[in-house]
Amino acid sequence: MSSELLALKGVGKTYGTVRALQDVSLTLRSGEISCVLGDNGAGKSTLIKIIAGLHQHDEGSYTIGGEEVRFGSPREALDRGIATVYQDLAVVPLMPVWRNFFLGSEQGMRRWGGLRLDADAMRATTREALAKMGIDLHDVDRPIGTLSGGQRQCVAIARAVHFGAEVLILDEPTAALGVKQSGVVLKYVTAARDAGLGVVLITHNPHHAYLVGDHFTLLKRGRMAGSHPRAEISLEQLTTEMAGGSDLAELSHELARPSDSRNSSGSSGSSDSRNSSDSRDSREERPQP
């Protein structure tokens, strides 16, 4: 197996009196996609914020290449090769694609002592880097807000890859996307992996996770509810664990209408939980009557 990029051991985090995260461990190697699954409020965002340097852990250890770290800002994490693509704040919508691509890592002209932006080179580099990831975008001057959600995610991923990130953290990259767009984004996630990056993929969709993941960590109410390499778990097991296993069976029983027992799984899907609807999809493999 390739080299270890980062490792969390027994990490915990408390906000005031709220224990957001407790005893979470995770190891990431290069060329590996590690998925973190969990429901809303399971501690996924706290976990990425710690890895990305927005927050600091107050228990356990966080090491990069074996060296203990504690980041004061996202900039420090970036300097150690950890790039994060957030679900909603990946880019600045009104800024042109090329300005977004280079934001925070702008390229200056040597002739001007690095003061003047080399706009033409930045445009060309943006085009090339996107093309390398399979994104054909000629007009990099258009505001990035005019791209679709999936395209924006892809630009953000291409940006992280281009600027030499070793670790890519993706926060719910497919949550707001349709089926087709999600597929495209997952393709770029694997492209990043093939480029040798280690990817931490945060999601609550076990199907998307299982399509690309090498390792699965399940979070529940701030604690680890499971940690499995791909070889040890099937999609069905993952889905069931993710959905809360026996909890779900109980829920579907509670929601079942006596007059309508034939359609009980359908009524459980009408509840507001996305996880239960996911698991329903997986169980109902047979065609609709």
């Binding site: 927005l54 880019v91 009104l94 934001l103 925070g104 706009a119």
Partner: peptide, 23 residues
């Protein structure tokens, strides 16, 4: 035409996104 100018657009357009990429 400068890096600082890029940051001006970014902090006004979306301060959180700007902070996340190190501005």
């Amino acid at each position: 035409r400068t890096r600082f100018g890029n940051w001006i657009f970014a902090v006004g357009g979306d301060a959180d996104a700007a902070r996340a990429v190190g501005v």
